[in-house]
Computed example of a mutant assay.
Amino acid sequence: MAAERTPRPTALVTGASAGIGREFAVQLAARGHDLVLVARDRARLDALAAELTSRYAVSAEVLVADLSDRSAVQTVADRLADPARPVDVHVNNAGYGQRRSFLRNDLAAEEAAFDVLTRAVLVLSHAAGVAMRDRGRGQIINVSSVAGFIASGSYSAAKAWVTTFSEGLASELEGTGVTVTALCPGFTNTEFQQRAGIGKPGPDFLWLDPSRLVGDCLDDVAKGRVVSVPGLQYKAMVGLLRVVPRSVIRRRARLVRR
């Protein structure tokens, strides 16, 4: 049975069960949004939905989906496109960490990561973009990464695509009432590294607080910014990476991989 439409705006967040996605869900609920929570782990989604409903008196719909599965992606796309239950904010956040370098990794794992990090963003942004454009309002947030500004394997390449794709979509939707923002965080204190089997690299000052990160991003979205880079340290880093010759960036990436 379809949920009854309320006057509150609705936000759909992928990868909502943990990390940055969970923080988006919490902060959007605190700002008065009903939620559609998307991830693979039903138990976590159910617990989060109960928490948000109790704490903020919003509704929280659970949609279990593995975004490496094309039929599951289409189910989420259909929800975004449903004119009877409009989505006002769409956050493409679902992630996929890789422990091994590209040529040392299993190709099936690389293909699954590609589907989650790029194809799902493409399909869901299309569904959300068309529906929002037709209504004349909406916000799309695509979670990219500072890694997209360097040259380090398929994850870096996927995030570079997400940022560039978001910039192009923002231009296409300019003047329609729909905004698109690529969020490009650096290292963030979540369970992402643990779940991917990756150690915690770098000094402490490089690590961002997810609550501050999401809050800053939502402020940037409200200002209509197309690329949101949280943290002064990463703003400086990205500014430098935009002017450093790519040959230097490639040499540095080779050193990091060794």
Score class of each variant (00 low, 15 high):
Asp216Glu: 01
Ala113Lys: 06
Val91Gly: 04
Val243Gly: 01
Asn142Thr: 04
Ser59Thr: 07
Arg250Gln: 10
Ala108Cys: 03
Asp209Ala: 05
Thr163Arg: 00
Arg22Ile: 02
Ala50Asn: 06
Pro83Ser: 08
Phe165Cys: 03
Pro230Thr: 05
Leu37Gln: 12
Arg251Leu: 15
Leu124Pro: 01
Val91Gln: 01
Ala25Pro: 01
Phe24Tyr: 15
Ser171Trp: 07
Arg22Gln: 15
Leu173Ala: 06
Leu45Lys: 07
Val123Cys: 07
Gln74His: 09
Ala43Phe: 05
Glu110Cys: 02
Gly95Gln: 00
Phe102Thr: 14
Pro230Lys: 10
Ala109Phe: 09
Gly202Glu: 01
Arg251Gln: 12
Val58Tyr: 08
Val146Ile: 14
Val248Asn: 13
Ala236Ser: 10
Arg246Asp: 15
Leu240Tyr: 01
Pro185Ile: 13
Met237Arg: 05
Val146Tyr: 13
Arg5Gln: 12
Leu240Asp: 04
Arg258Val: 11
Tyr155Lys: 11
Asp66Met: 11
Val238Trp: 00
Tyr234Ser: 02
Ala18Met: 04
Lys200Ala: 09
Gly148Ala: 08
Thr6Asp: 10
Ala18Gly: 00
Thr75Arg: 11
Arg137Asn: 09
Val248Asp: 12
Val243Pro: 12
Asp34Glu: 06
Ser71Tyr: 03
Ala25Arg: 00
Leu213Gln: 05
Pro230Asn: 05
Leu28Cys: 08
Leu218Ala: 12
Leu206Met: 15
Val180Gln: 09
Ala120Gln: 08
Ala47Leu: 03
Val73Arg: 02
Phe165Leu: 10
Ser247His: 02
Arg99Ile: 00
Gly177Gln: 02
Gly177Leu: 02
